[in-house]
Nucleic acid binder design. Sequence first.
DNA 1: CCCAATCCTTGACCCAGATCAACCGGACCC
DNA 2: GGGTCCGGTTGATCTGGGTCAAGGATTGGG
Lengths: 246, 246
Amino acid sequence: MNAPILSQSRCGDCPIRHRAVCARCNADELEELDAIKYYRTYEAGQPIIWSGDVMNFVGSVVSGIASLTQTMEDGRTQMVGLLLPSDFVGRPGREGAAYDVAATTDVVMCCFRKKPFEELMERTPHIAHRLLEMTLDELDAAREWMLVLGRKTAREKIASLLAIIARRDATLTPGGATNRMVFDLPLTREAMADYLGLTLETVSRQISALKKDGIIELEGKRHVTVPDMRRLMEEAGDDSDGGFLG
Amino acid sequence: MNAPILSQSRCGDCPIRHRAVCARCNADELEELDAIKYYRTYEAGQPIIWSGDVMNFVGSVVSGIASLTQTMEDGRTQMVGLLLPSDFVGRPGREGAAYDVAATTDVVMCCFRKKPFEELMERTPHIAHRLLEMTLDELDAAREWMLVLGRKTAREKIASLLAIIARRDATLTPGGATNRMVFDLPLTREAMADYLGLTLETVSRQISALKKDGIIELEGKRHVTVPDMRRLMEEAGDDSDGGFLG
DNA sequence: CCCAATCCTTGACCCAGATCAACCGGACCC
DNA sequence: GGGTCCGGTTGATCTGGGTCAAGGATTGGG
């Protein structure tokens, strides 16, 4: 939501410019990061981390979408965050993972071994500051989502989610926010339901309703056109920022 | 939930030992903190910060309980965090406040002027680390609460809230968690409803139901005895940690 | 081509929790 | 004493979204 300084330099040879750890890093630090990093790919549906596992890396999403999920013993689940490209994963200074992380689409991660990363962080205050900033962003986003979960109707929830995806998509493509937006849903109906605290049937029904009312247009099941973002935002009951980073 | 090192030294003459910024601070730093700090009191019900206001301080709650609240244009509100004594308020490096903060009971705050605090933070990496740690705790708590909001029934929500208050109370009184717990509810039924994404009628009914079923005992409207914490935790559908710090 | 597996849609019905409304009881104040 | 708040309880009713169930569309494999 509050995307600060995008890095002008690349993190080593990462195919994207991380918004994460390398902003403002100088050449020495980037070299150090380079030395402790490696790439991993995950197929859609694969788990990346299980809640409670010992985490031995932190990193950023390079491409694809991952989800953070909480689960109850009886199987009820709630998605508590979406990780989009450039989002950071992991908790420097923490032993275990707090939630399940899974690849929603095929995912490429740029990982840093945790110990050396923490050591680099000790020596490099601006990395710690950057992480604090990112964590505050995520906290804002999580709290915004609490309002969605606690007080919004099903229709408003769907509209909120669509608005977030549209907005986030806009940050990755040049041009910024316009009235008309086109994007592909990166989530199944079930994943959307998990995110919104709904059932997949309700998600489906509300998407159909938004379509019938001309708020969105659908081509196939995933390809969405929003003819007028302002109308969508109204449906979301929300003229505030609405960005959820995960 | 993950209360790390409690400060052995006091933050200047604060009447409580902050768990917040002064853990591990040495004498020099405490002196600096002392120089930029001041106390403020707020009466129950009073606003402390309005969403969007420019914040010129950060600080900790010394006594009393404050709440963080999100509001929609049409008046629906969702509490997104509870601030209990020793909890930190404010967002170093951020201009504006993201939510309304209000005193739920009478509150005493120990405030630090923001600019000098940020400067001290620049020079003192362990303060930045401490803040990162606290922010990660809050993020965990917020995400845990998303599960409560999105997937739990009204009864489970009430039980979860009672468990959190009981647990948090226990961290402030010696002895730690036992089976039997006694505490006072620091929230009105309405505030509980705001926190849980329910109406106050539902809160009242579910509390009555828990009482009828012997999960809790009530003396007056606020004084609660939990004869067996394990039973309460079962009702919360939750054998995990469940601590929400705010 | 058929078959099976996914993912999605739609319909019929039901129930948890919202809504509307009446009332209780203690604190405070004339 | 008698108001009148204010917070809380309880009842009656309504409804949004859950649940159960039956297909439809697309994909991939034999």
